[in-house]
Each structure stands twice: as C-alpha cells, then as structure tokens.
C-alpha cells in the first residue's frame, strides 16, 4: 500500500491532495498510519508498529486498517497500482 507522493499531511492531521484540491481530517492514529505509509513502511510493518504502541488486538486493528485503506482508495489517495 503506497500513498501518492504529493499528498501533504500536517501535524494536526489535516490532509490535502494538491492534484484534486480535496482536503480531509484524520485522527492522530490515522495521521500516524499515513506518516508510516509516507516513510515507505509495508502493511505488515504498520500493523506491527501500531499494535506495539497501542493496546489493540492485532485482528481488530487489521480489520480497521483494511477499512481505512478502502476509504483512502475511494478518495484516490493511494497510488493506482494499489
């Protein structure tokens, strides 16, 4: 899963897609996931890191991450080959 390189995200979780002009707000965990994606981490690495940092069950987080990825895909925030 790769996020489009031009997507900008601020510390407050405000996300701007300069190609479409759309903007979104994500919560702190969402921002963390997006930053991990920007740094090039894989799906598995993100699951490892987030479940290490927060008390969340792996299965439950995996399901949420899948849903989050679906929303990002719907808003064309992910690279096309994803």
């Amino acid at each position: 899963m790769k996020i489009k390189h031009q997507i900008a995200i601020s510390d407050t979780g405000f996300l701007f897609n300069p190609a479409t002009g759309e903007s979104f707000t994500v919560n702190p965990v969402g921002a963390e996931i997006i930053n991990l994606l920007r740094e090039g981490h894989t799906w598995q690495e993100i699951i490892d890191k987030i479940t290490e940092m927060y008390s969340v069950e792996r299965n439950s987080f995996e399901k949420d991450l899948h849903e989050f990825a679906g929303i990002m895909k719907m808003h064309q925030l992910l690279d096309k080959d994803e």
Partner: peptide, 19 residues
C-alpha cells in the same frame, strides 16, 4: 477546484490545485 458553489453554479470559494 470549486469548493463552494452558489445556486447559480458560480464558485464562491475555490482552491488552486496541481493537476
């Protein structure tokens, strides 16, 4: 991109984009 459109279809707010 038009961000806010009036009932006459005119942009009341917009944002510069890179497309």
């Amino acid at each position: 991109r038009k961000q806010y459109i009036t009932d006459k279809g005119k942009a009341w707010a917009g944002i510069s984009i890179a497309d």
